[in-house]
């Protein structure tokens, strides 16, 4: 299984190449592109990016594992990242975890059997003013209650 960037990403890479004094700075942008393109960062993507940036694949792996948003395995179609930090904890994140646990029969870190939903617990997302809050496929939802969560999930295709 090989990996190549699609033409849109190639275009972006070309543009970014001129925006930084050294190509190493493209490491995070290229990992992001690979993740959006494939859903996760595949070993092949690591090798490809390493070769493009003239870095070792190990070096790239060290970076991909440092940043928690980079995924080294696939997640469900819908990825809920629920904030577990203090303000959200004070405002009821536990009730949401419990609710989803009952609804889907999964624990944080797991994906539903049909591969539709993954639940992750994450650290403060800067949405404390709307605690408890979560991010669903990178969109913030604040002041979440079990009921509003159900409504949100029902609206998904």
């Amino acid at each position: 299984m090989s990996f190549t960037f699609n033409p849109i990403n190639e275009e972006k890479i070309k543009k970014l190449w001129g925006e930084y004094p050294k190509k190493e700075s493209l490491t995070l942008p290229m990992l992001w592109m690979a993740q959006y393109q494939e859903g996760w960062i595949t070993p092949e993507a690591i090798r490809t990016i390493a070769a493009r940036l003239e870095l070792s694949p190990s070096h790239l792996f060290g970076i991909a594992t440092f940043y928690t948003m980079f995924r080294l395995s696939a997640v469900g179609t819908y990825h809920i990242e629920l904030c577990q930090t203090l303000s959200c904890a004070l405002c009821g994140k536990d009730a949401l975890i419990e609710h989803l646990g009952k609804k889907w029969g999964i624990r944080p870190g797991e994906t539903t059997e049909d591969g539709r939903f993954t639940l992750s617990l994450v650290e403060c997302l800067g949405g404390c003013g709307g605690a408890p809050m979560l991010s669903l496929n990178e969109t913030y939802h604040e002041n979440v209650t079990p009921e509003s969560l159900d409504a949100l999930l029902e609206g998904l295709s």
Partner: peptide
């Protein structure tokens, strides 16, 4: 430039390391 999930990258020198494409 987008980070990718690391609180410590708010520390200014860590931020620059990250901007340089490193951990």
């Amino acid at each position: 430039h987008r980070g990718a999930g690391a609180y410590i990258c708010g520390e200014k020198s860590a931020l620059l390391e990250s901007l340089e494409g490193k951990r």
